[in-house]
Design a protein around this nucleic acid. Structure first.
Length: 607
DNA sequence: TGTGATAGCTCG
DNA sequence: GTACGAGCTATCACAC
């Protein structure tokens, strides 16, 4: 029950600069509903959940907090579980309260998590997101830390109560006493509201628009993808594991016998010892701690010892087994309907891209035959097909768009093979096909701010030759050079770069040494393309998500320039076409956007 | 037994 | 000494 002081607190007028606040425990359903009914219709409500787990899909809700003015915040206990626990709100009443509360303008810190928790614990209809402070802070500076504790310190010099100080080791939030839970949880909601107002003031209008029109709706897009998950074929991975285990065992024995030594093949230290000391092979590269044994080094040694090719093969197989096959097999067994749910990190990169973790589904192998077999284990459910759509050469198209280079624009506008066209301009008709690979490497290199050293490594030529290729390129495409230089000049002048939609990334040139300085210039150039490509696919994903018809098609994955859907078999072809149209028409540029389509029963077939 | 750094590999 | 952006696994050294 509320104390008298707390009841009076309900009527305190908000102050402009609150430095402290009251935390109020709402443990009576009637009073809870009264508080919520008393909110202004257009009130901005900071909202936070407390749960039993960081994993939103296994988390049971323990309570929630909210804050509407900076004088006080409320905590609603639902399922704390310890001997002698006080009054709490039933799940049924909590649901009723949440339905009303979440009709307001909801602000949160990482709302993707809290909304997933609410969806999973109560079967609520779509919750609209008003703002997310984590995303606002990320847009303000995508390389800064965006955790609530850090932001509270940074913007208000306020040390937050630490989770560790509230929750005993090995326990979860359900065992936290109601009074300390109330203090902790309401502080989160209170700080979130303060941060919202602060960030609202600090962000320029362009970034607030990007937030409202792209990033906030995108939270819902990600939520739906994560919730859906993708089906994996456990039996398939079981077989694959047996096969790789056998092959690994065989290779291991061959290598030991060829090297005349038994050692831990996974230890680069021990391998270096065997190769460069016992066998006396020439060491070409060093690491901080000893000999390098990476792929490039081993390839150099291929014709020097019979074991090398086996070691490379072993590396490939062991990687597949330990990083992909075993973890995916385990997940297939533990997840309902054998569907794995990645976690997309909305604020995970400095460029605007997503990242994916636990498991990372954005780096599933594709480049080798064996690697592609892993993709075969990602399947469509019965009656469905996987549809893959892919923006082709989106970053290079953006280079053509931004630079306005006539030759590049022409190549794209007449739907030519861009790499061959580049080779044609550089080397002439006779050599165009032979030098396509060189042109492709240069085109890629441009987007990364390459130097002759790396290009020569990539192409297996001398640094001198690489330099002449690059010089030749810029002589042929002077507009491209001018544009790339202008990115660098502008970055040095203002200290940041911007993407197509105005996303920013800052560089501290003033406090950089030579190497950092050069690194910043490369990052500045690359961010424009990588970040603008990220902008475009986010626009597409939001638009597609808004038009998805129930159960006919689901968006499952994004892999930077590619989307994977699960679609009813009979709808797959038409659906793919409609998605292609949306994606190609998502933004008017000086070049056409091109999307390619692939359809199959599993991910391995999508090529 | 746990943690952080390092090396190496996967993807776009 | 210079090609961008990510995450995961294993080893190793060191602390407790």
């Amino acid at each position: 029950m509320l104390s008298k002081v707390k009841s009076e607190a309900l009527h305190v007028k908000p102050k402009v600069e609150a430095t402290s606040f009251q935390s109020i425990l709402l443990d009576d359903a009637k009073i809870l509903m009264n508080v919520i009914d008393g909110l202004e219709e257009d009130a901005i409500v900071a909202f936070d959940t407390e749960t039993t787990s960081l994993d939103a899909y296994n988390a049971k809700i323990v309570g929630f907090s909210f804050c509407v003015d900076e004088d006080m915040a409320y905590y609603v206990p639902i399922s704390h579980n310890y001997l002698g626990v006080g009054e709490q709100i039933s799940m049924e009443d909590a649901k009723k309260a949440l339905i009303e509360l979440l009709k307001h303008k909801i602000v949160g810190q990482n709302l993707k998590y809290d909304i997933a928790v609410v969806y999973n614990n109560f079967n609520l209809p779509r919750i609209d997101i008003y703002a997310d402070t984590m995303i606002l802070a990320w847009l303000l500076n995508p390389e800064s830390s965006v955790g609530l504790d850090t932001l509270a310190l940074r913007f208000f010099n306020h040390p937050m109560i630490k989770f560790k100080d509230v929750v005993q080791k090995g326990e979860n939030f359900s065992t936290v006493p109601l009074d300390s839970a109330c203090e902790y949880a309401s502080e989160d909601a209170w700080m979130t509201l303060k941060l919202y107002h602060k960030l609202q003031e600090m962000l320029e209008p362009k970034l607030l628009i990007l937030a409202r029109e792209v990033e906030f709706p995108f939270i819902h897009t990600l939520l739906m993808m994560e919730k859906e998950g993708i089906k994996v074929d456990g039996a398939y991975f079981e077989t694959l594991l047996l096969r790789t285990d056998k092959a690994i065992e065989l290779l291991k024995n061959e290598i030991f016998s060829l090297c005349n030594a038994t050692f831990n093949l996974n230890s680069t230290q021990q391998l270096g010892n065997v190769l460069f000391e016992q066998l006396g092979l020439p060491a070409v590269k060093k690491t901080k701690t000893g000999y390098s044994t990476d792929e490039n080094v081993l390839k150099e040694l291929l014709d020097k010892h019979e074991s090398i090719s086996k070691i490379l093969e072993y590396r490939e197989l062991y990687k597949l087994k330990s990083t992909y096959i075993e973890p995916l097999l385990k997940l297939s067994k533990t997840s309902p309907e054998s569907r794995v749910h990645t976690s997309f990190m909305h604020t995970g990169t400095a460029t605007g891209r997503l990242s994916s973790k636990e498991p990372n589904l954005q780096n599933i192998p594709v480049k080798t035959e064996l690697g592609r077999e892993v993709r075969g284990g990602f399947v469509a459910k019965d009656g469905c097909l996987l549809v893959g759509v892919d923006y082709s050469q989106i970053e290079l198209r953006l280079l053509a768009h931004f630079s306005g280079d006539e030759a590049m624009l022409e190549a794209f506008n007449t739907h030519k093979d861009i790499h061959r066209q580049t080779a044609l301009r550089l080397f002439g008709e006779a050599e165009a096909d032979a030098k396509r690979g060189v042109a492709k490497s240069i085109n890629f290199g441009l987007l990364y701010g390459m130097g002759p050293k790396k290009l020569s490594d990539t192409l297996g030529i001398t640094t001198k030759e690489a330099k002449s290729y690059i010089d030749g390129y810029f002589a042929t495409f002077p507009t491209v050079r001018k544009y790339l230089t202008s990115i660098e000049e502008r970055a040095k002048e203002v200290g940041f770069v911007e993407t197509l939609l105005g996303r920013k990334r800052y560089f501290d040139f003033e406090n950089a040494n030579g190497m950092q300085y050069a690194g910043y210039l490369r990052e500045a150039v690359n961010t424009v393309f990588q970040g603008s490509a990220a902008d475009l696919i986010k626009l597409s994903m939001n638009k597609i998500m808004a038009t998805l018809v129930d159960d006919e098609a689901k968006l499952l994955l994004q892999i930077h320039d590619e989307l994977i859907f699960e679609v009813k078999e009979e709808k797959a072809e038409a659906f793919a076409q409609s998605v292609k149209e949306v994606m190609e028409g998502i933004y008017a540029l000086h070049i056409p956007l091109k999307v390619s389509i692939a359809i199959g029963k599993n991910w391995g077939e999508l090529k």
